[in-house]
Design a protein around this nucleic acid. Structure first.
Lengths: 214, 214
DNA sequence: ACGTGCGTGTTACTAGCGGTAACCCTAGTT
DNA sequence: AACTAGGGTTACCGCTAGTAACACGCACGT
């Protein structure tokens, strides 16, 4: 039968694809986002054209690789966000989950943040921000839907939720990136400071005397 | 005299340097962050090795270029932050200034955010986040000092201020990037939504009924 | 007047990248 | 036995960042 044959081949192809992705994973974990196609092919024990047959081009491979990690991280984040606890505890748990993830595997984190930068071929017409940082975008959208679903924000809630989703994710990202580089405090302290910020301590803080009255 | 001679040469070199930077600026404005050294040299009417004599390598040129824009933008932001008005108005003015800047010249913005990505040569040992996004880091530190100077945050204020500085900048950045790509609302609305977030509306919002109680 | 540096510029090259065309070789079908 | 279909490789293209090595010009000390 034709179909069985095709499924057989499909299976083989899928297995190969997974093997290749795992090899690519190892290389990215070792070399960072600038892992070369040659290196990945060598790690997988084959040569470049096979990679290109499977993934089209580098962006394709990177997209597939990024999807795996992004999906995994998003699952953890959803779990943290859905845990049974009050809102502040959930927010803190989610922040902590994210920070723990980037702390555990910084190379992967860095790869996810800057996947397809700097190709020398037809990257033209790239519509600023279009294929940049899919992880951040996905997290932002995800958070936006959660906020919009669960919070009562009055009129214009959908738009507000999206702004907040992307804004909060960006806050988490930037603070995490900085923290990962300088390690100025413990993860728990960072989480608490960020939650404090989200909880309005900025607006509630009093002016210092002597200043121009910020 | 030796000194006059040296200053003469210094002047000449500086003038050339400025010319080269302006040429590079034009190319980056046209081609985005992936402008090639060849293209920049051609735009300046000279050839590659001169660029390398002046700036060392691509990172050097990009750093010099980034410093100009970053300094200019930081000046605008400082001005907005120092305007005579109450705190919320100042925050909104600062957000708006940033968003107006990235809206006006997205190519430059994109260049500033991802300056040295994707080189294929010895970028190894790059210490995650080390030479990434100098603009965000500088803005974060700047805002941190302002916060720490002017706000009364109680014990641990310095660390808290730094976390907040980087966090707020990241929020602004991510929201701006997303907004620039999708244009889901006007700049003013975005500014208002972000300020609302900073002003604690997240913590103050009530739960929607029927949900699991976010 | 004459070499002698030194700054400024070029050509021509290397090494490595992403990506591809052309070939090759083995397994299964008829 | 002949033929075909995939999986695989070699060898290449065009591009990039970066670098020798060479060439012109101009002020200088002797």
């Amino acid at each position: 039968m034709d179909t069985t044959q095709r499924t057989e081949q499909q299976r083989s192809a899928d297995r190969r694809r997974r093997e290749l992705l795992e090899a690519a994973d190892r290389v990215v974990l070792r070399d960072g986002p600038q892992a070369s196609m040659n290196a990945i092919a060598a790690e997988a024990g084959i040569t470049k054209p096979i990679l290109y047959r499977h993934f089209g081009d580098k962006s394709g491979l990177y997209a597939a690789l990024a999807k795996r990690h992004t999906d995994a991280l998003l699952d953890s984040l959803r779990a943290a966000l859905d845990a049974p606890a009050d809102r502040r505890e959930r927010v803190e748990a989610t922040l902590d989950t994210y920070l723990a993830a980037i702390e555990a595997r910084p190379q992967v984190y860095r790869f996810l943040m800057h996947p397809t930068e700097g190709g020398q071929t037809a990257d033209q017409g790239f519509d600023v921000g279009k294929h940049s940082m899919p992880l951040l975008r996905r997290m932002g959208e995800e958070l936006a839907t959660v906020i919009e679903e669960r919070l009562d924000l009055g009129p214009g809630s959908q738009q507000l939720a999206r702004v907040w989703g992307h804004g909060i994710v960006g806050m988490m990202h930037a603070a995490g990136d900085w923290w990962l580089g300088e390690r100025p405090c413990s993860r728990a302290e960072l989480v608490r400071s960020l939650a404090d910020l989200l909880w309005g301590r900025l607006a509630a803080a009093g002016d210092k005397m002597g200043g121009p009255g910020f």
